[in-house]
Design a protein around this nucleic acid. Structure first.
Lengths: 113, 113
DNA sequence: TGTTGTACTGACTAATTTGTCAGTATGTGG
DNA sequence: CCACATACTGACAAATTAGTCAGTACAACA
């Protein structure tokens, strides 16, 4: 019974994780903290990401209400992504996660495990 | 370049997620909040989990220093798992995650998305 | 004696997630 | 005319994670 984290779970922890879980979502959110960015700007600012994955994650984050997509109708297209008000409520949680993560990295580097 | 969350990442968010990410880890931690439990008690208290997955996740959590395994040498074997002091530092983070997750579930149920 | 319960491991298979590669439309610049 | 950049999509392949199934040792119990 493999269950994807993508379907909304009854467990609040899983529900939250389903939103930020994804190979590049943390980084994307991190980048967008400084303000809206175009798809291609994001791609260039995240080393290693492919356009396909970027767009897939962006779409999921938009679906979850974390990001907003606004498109200027011109050619070549210009699409900008920004964090929504709702997305902002994630910030303090991510901050806590980050603090713990930093401690954990330090601990692992000291060789404890 | 698929990168597993299992290898410790330089990103603190990923580092934290690698510890709690896993289909059943949240639930396992949740169960163990009430005190130490035997492997079989855990298995019976988590509907849907298989023994294989339980043990795999328990071992990872032990490796990460979140859980402790203590074994009484007798037959049939008796192994108890408990949350370590270090594991306890996760609690406030999980709490925040949980709070946000609950709000998110409510929001999704209201049909916003 | 045969069955049961415990805490595992090994060898798989299946599901899910990531990543690769080739397109698409179209205005501008050479 | 031709290449270029943009923001995508579709069809796959590869990697990772989850789950299935059988098997182990051995005391206790019927």
């Amino acid at each position: 019974m493999p269950v994807s984290k993508k379907e909304i779970s009854q467990c609040p922890i899983d529900a939250m994780l389903s939103v930020i879980d994804g190979r590049w979502k943390g980084t994307i959110l991190w980048r967008l903290c400084d303000g809206p960015m175009r798809t291609s700007e994001l791609r260039r600012s995240i080393p290693g990401i492919t356009e396909r994955m970027l767009i897939r994650h962006l779409q999921e984050l938009v679906q979850d209400g974390i990001l907003m997509r606004h498109e200027e109708k011109r050619v070549p297209p210009c699409v900008r992504y920004s964090i929504t008000k709702y997305g902002m409520t994630l910030a303090p949680v991510l901050e806590e996660i980050c603090v713990w993560g930093r401690k954990h990295i330090a601990r692992v580097e000291k060789g404890l495990r």
